[in-house]
């Protein structure tokens, strides 16, 4: 037998377990479709979906890039405005009492219901879709950032007070760093919500993007194509969250959730 280094084998096993689950799911699906001769218009088999994707990869890639672009634009806007809003309401109690109930109220309105309104305001271009992605994503950013900014330990607050640091210094050197673990938890939620928002926007009015692909294929009862778009969405969703996780690790080299991985890599598995 070939000797596989223990560390390599173990890391392969770790990373392959999630894939194994997905693979088993696909195999059962494929067998079920063949065994019960399910009509493709109801449920196409995974191989048919793969075939659909392989038929026009460039076209699917183009639609995917458009949807990812809308998602990232909405997400970026949600991060910038969400973090700023959270800082404002945490730093000024009056603003919190003034604006936070309004913000919660607005968030309770289903964003899908606002989508047609955005078409009236912003036309049929990219703007209304980015706006919807932004609106759906921003709540998670605000809630988690505000929670994080308030999570400074009492001793650290006392320290800052005895050092007579300015409010800006306390915010920049202490509060923002304290908020980061919470912020990144919020960003992961916000990223998947922004993707939902982008699809909702494309459903309402679009000539491009995966949402448009799903809607137009459904109009022609082209179920394999619907599934192809959904499969891409699933992969894109996982990739976007993974990207946030990578940025999280790079942004917080001091944090324990990153340290453990470092430690593991150096010493190897036990």
């Amino acid at each position: 037998m070939i000797e596989i280094p223990a560390a390599l084998w173990s890391s392969f096993r770790r990373s392959s377990i999630p894939l194994l689950g997905a693979l088993a799911f696909l195999v059962i699906w494929e067998i079920a479709c063949r065994l019960f001769s399910i009509r493709p218009i109801l449920l196409p088999s995974p191989l048919m979906v793969l075939h659909e994707l392989a038929a026009s990869p460039a076209w699917f890639a183009e639609q995917t890039i458009y949807t990812v672009g809308i998602t990232l634009a909405g997400f970026a806007a949600a991060v910038v405005f969400g973090v700023l809003f959270a800082i404002l309401i945490v730093e000024w109690k009056l603003l919190e009492r003034l604006l936070f109930p309004l913000f919660v109220g607005l968030n309770s309105v289903p964003k899908v219901a606002l989508a047609p309104l955005f078409i009236i305001w912003f036309g049929v271009g990219d703007t209304p879709k980015v706006a919807i992605a932004f609106l759906i994503a921003v709540f998670a950013v605000v809630i988690d950032t505000a929670l994080g900014l308030r999570s400074v330990p009492p001793d650290t607050i006392d320290l800052a007070r005895t050092l007579r640091g300015s409010r800006l210094k306390v915010l920049l050197r202490v509060k923002l760093f304290c908020a980061m673990p919470h912020l990144f938890a919020g960003l992961k939620v916000a990223m998947s919500l922004a993707l939902v928002g982008a699809i909702v926007g494309e459903f309402v009015s679009s000539q491009r993007g995966l949402g448009y692909v799903i809607l137009s294929a459904q109009g022609m009862f082209d179920t394999p194509r619907v599934f192809a778009a959904i499969a891409i969405l699933a992969v894109v969703g996982v990739a976007l969250i993974a990207a946030v996780t990578v940025i999280e690790r790079l942004a917080m080299p001091w944090h324990h959730s990153t340290e453990r991985h470092e430690h593991w890599r150096i010493t190897g598995p036990k």
Binding site: P153, D155, T156, D158, L159, A160, L163, R164, G165, S166, K169, R173, V174, F177, M180, M252, W254, H255
Partner: peptide, 22 residues
């Protein structure tokens, strides 16, 4: 303080220099 109140995100030198910074 009883709990040292070091800032986890700064290295040792930055922590010691905090009073100057503030």
């Amino acid at each position: 303080f009883q709990r040292d109140a070091l800032l986890d995100w700064f290295d040792v030198l930055e922590n010691v220099l905090l009073p100057a910074d503030f």
